[in-house]
Structure formats: structure tokens, C-alpha cells
């Protein structure tokens, strides 16, 4: 009898948990669908639908959090534990809400004219193209540097390796604007910079090349950091075994260490790309923003808002976010378990 009762309770609890989980999933789907619908309705200037979608959207988000929170705490015994999980969960909910709130604000502010302008203007198409080309180039160059650097920092102990490790982080704490300013001074005021620009003929200032350089300076550290920690996680003994099994140092690197660090390398590439894609401060200083030549999406946003086209600026911003989300999503899907770790 007692046994029966207990089974019954367990089953009930199981069913409630399942319901809570389903509630959370449903609210999330509802939120995403209504958000899309709301944005489309707003751009298409269907007033009624916009209001309805907005209402559904802002009510399904709290529902999602409440369901998720209840779902988590339904698997925990005792009130202190549940309270703990709720308190831990709360900042996450708040942060996600804030992020969505900002994106939706952008989306609700733009109008039909701005969207049409963004979709039809050739200069925005050029900027998008240049953004993608430069950021991908930056990622490739950054990986060419970061993979050996990450490996060296992870494996070799040389005098001052802590110093080297610290220097690698400097570009992260460097304000991006300062990076651009420094590069400009370097190329125009120092002998070495002038030699590179004038004698070597490698011009960076006001050139698309300069975009890649700026992006590389401010974003490569992310790749190095992430790849170093990926190599840290590869047990040295694995490489040792590979060496005894007939691999040279090169072979053990390419057959063991590199495949095993691929997750971290992917994560580093994502971080680098995201940073490179969105950076704009140093570009304004080093390469300027010439329509059709050195203009990228992030500088377009600045230019548009500086002449008062707030709607167009925000529409371009949405385009930037959209491209970024598509890219990140695709890489995540392709990369399987490639998780972003820092």
C-alpha cells in the first residue's frame, strides 16, 4: 500500500516536471515566433498585429523563465536548495531579457523606408561584403598566428613565459580606439611605419588592408587565449604516446593535439570573428569610412546615425546582428560540440 502510494507520488511528480518542461519550451517558441511576427508587422506597418505580437512576446518571456525556474526546482529536494537555484537562475533571466529588450527596441524603432533603403542601397551591400571578407580574412590570419602561439604558450616554459602570456592579453584591455590611434601614429610618424608604407609599398592607412590589420590587432587575443586553454586540456602523455608509436613531433601535433583542440580552436575563431565583425573605433581612425572602398557595416551605422538617419542606422545594426546570428548558428551546428570557452 505504502509502496503503491510512493510510486503514485513519483509518477505524479514526474508528470508535473514534464508539464513544466513543456511549458517552458512552448513559451520559448511562442516568444520567438511572436518576436519575429512583431518585427515583420512593425516594418510592414500593420499596427494592430504589432501590438498583439508585442503583448504576446512580453508575456511569454516571463512565462518562459517562470516555467524554467519551476522545472529546475522541481528536481531539487528541500527549500534551501530550491531557493538557491532560483537565486542562481535569476540573473540569467534578467540578462537574457535585457539583451532581447535591446534588440527588440531596435527592431521596433525602424520603419518601412529604412528597411527598403537597407535592402536596396548598393553601398550597404558593398559594406556588408567588405565586412564579411575582411572579418573572415582576419580570422584566417588570426588562426595562423594563434594556433602556434597557443601551443607555444601552453607547452613551452621559457624565461619570461608569464610575461609573454600577459602581453598576449594586452590587446583585450586596450581600448579599440587607442589601437587605431596607435596604428595611425605608427604608420605616419615612425621610421619603421613609413618604411613599410612607402618603401615596401604595403599601404595600410585608408586601405581595406588596414581594416584587416585593425581587426587582427583587437581580436587575435581572443583566439590565442581560447586556443591556449584548448591545448592545455590536451594531455601531454597523448603526444608522448604518439611519439613512441611512430609519429614525429609534427605528426603528433597534426594527428593528436590539433584534432583534440579543434573545439577550442573553433571557439577561438568564433570569438575572433564576432569581435572583428563588430569593431568600428580603430577603423574610423586608421582607414576612415569611404563609401564603396573602406566602409564596413559597423562604420555605416556610425555614419548614418551621425547624419541623423537613426532608422537606417538601426536597420543596418539589425542586419549586422542577423548576419552574426546566422554565422554563429551555422558554425555551432557544423562544429557539433564546439563550445565557446574562455
Amino acid at each position: 500500500m505504502n509502496q503503491d502510494k510512493r510510486t503514485c507520488i513519483t509518477e505524479n511528480v514526474g508528470r508535473v516536471t514534464q508539464k513544466l518542461k513543456m511549458g517552458a519550451s512552448l513559451s520559448l517558441v511562442l516568444f520567438i515566433v511572436s518576436a519575429f511576427l512583431g518585427v515583420i508587422a512593425n516594418v510592414s506597418e500593420w499596427g494592430m498585429l504589432t501590438h498583439i505580437s508585442a503583448f504576446i512576446m512580453w508575456s511569454s518571456l516571463p512565462c518562459y523563465f517562470i516555467f524554467s525556474m519551476l522545472y529546475i526546482s522541481s528536481n531539487i529536494n528541500g527549500w534551501p536548495g530550491r531557493l538557491f537555484s532560483v537565486i542562481i537562475f535569476f540573473p540569467l533571466a534578467l540578462f537574457i531579457s535585457l539583451a532581447f529588450f535591446l534588440i527588440i527596441t531596435d527592431a521596433m524603432y525602424i520603419d518601412k523606408a529604412a528597411v527598403i533603403k537597407v535592402l536596396t542601397s548598393s553601398f550597404i551591400r558593398d559594406a556588408l561584403q567588405l565586412s564579411i571578407i575582411t572579418s573572415v580574412t582576419t580570422v584566417v590570419i588570426a588562426l595562423i598566428f594563434a594556433i602556434p602561439m597557443g601551443y607555444a604558450l601552453s607547452r613551452y616554459r621559457f624565461p619570461g613565459h608569464i610575461f609573454a602570456d600577459t602581453v598576449v592579453d594586452i590587446p583585450i584591455v586596450f581600448p579599440p580606439l587607442v589601437a587605431g590611434l596607435t596604428l595611425l601614429v605608427f604608420f605616419s610618424e615612425t621610421g619603421m611605419g613609413r618604411w613599410i608604407q612607402e618603401d615596401l609599398g604595403l599601404e595600410f592607412v585608408f586601405q581595406p588592408r588596414g581594416i584587416v590589420l585593425c581587426q587582427f590587432i583587437v581580436s587575435a587575443s581572443f583566439a590565442i587565449r581560447s586556443i591556449k586553454s584548448a591545448f592545455d586540456d590536451v594531455d601531454r602523455r597523448l603526444e608522448n604516446v604518439a611519439l613512441t608509436l611512430g609519429c614525429s613531433q609534427w605528426g603528433s601535433f597534426f594527428r593528436v593535439s590539433l584534432p583534440m583542440a579543434s573545439g577550442g580552436i573553433m571557439a577561438g575563431a568564433i570569438l575572433t570573428w564576432a569581435r572583428a565583425f563588430g569593431i568600428f573605433g580603430p577603423l574610423m581612425i586608421l582607414v576612415g569610412s569611404f563609401r564603396g572602398r573602406t566602409e564596413v557595416l559597423s562604420t555605416t551605422i556610425y555614419l548614418e546615425q551621425s547624419v541623423g538617419n537613426l532608422e537606417v542606422a538601426l536597420a543596418v545594426a539589425l542586419l549586422l546582428i542577423l548576419v552574426a546570428m546566422i554565422a554563429l548558428g551555422t558554425i555551432r551546428l557544423l562544429g557539433g560540440k564546439a563550445l565557446v570557452r574562455l
Binding site: 602523455r237 597523448l238 604516446v241 613512441t244 614525429s248 583534440m260
Partner: peptide, 20 residues
């Protein structure tokens, strides 16, 4: 000599199997 030139079979502690 390099490890691969020594004709040794090595089993390290915790075996170090290639997880990938």
C-alpha cells in the same frame, strides 16, 4: 634518438588513449 626510432611500446600512466 627520437622516441619513434627506439622500437619501444609505451603504456603511460592512465593509458593516454586517444579520445578522438
Amino acid at each position: 634518438a627520437e622516441p619513434r626510432k627506439r622500437s619501444i611500446g609505451y603504456v603511460p600512466q592512465d593509458y593516454a588513449l586517444f579520445p578522438h
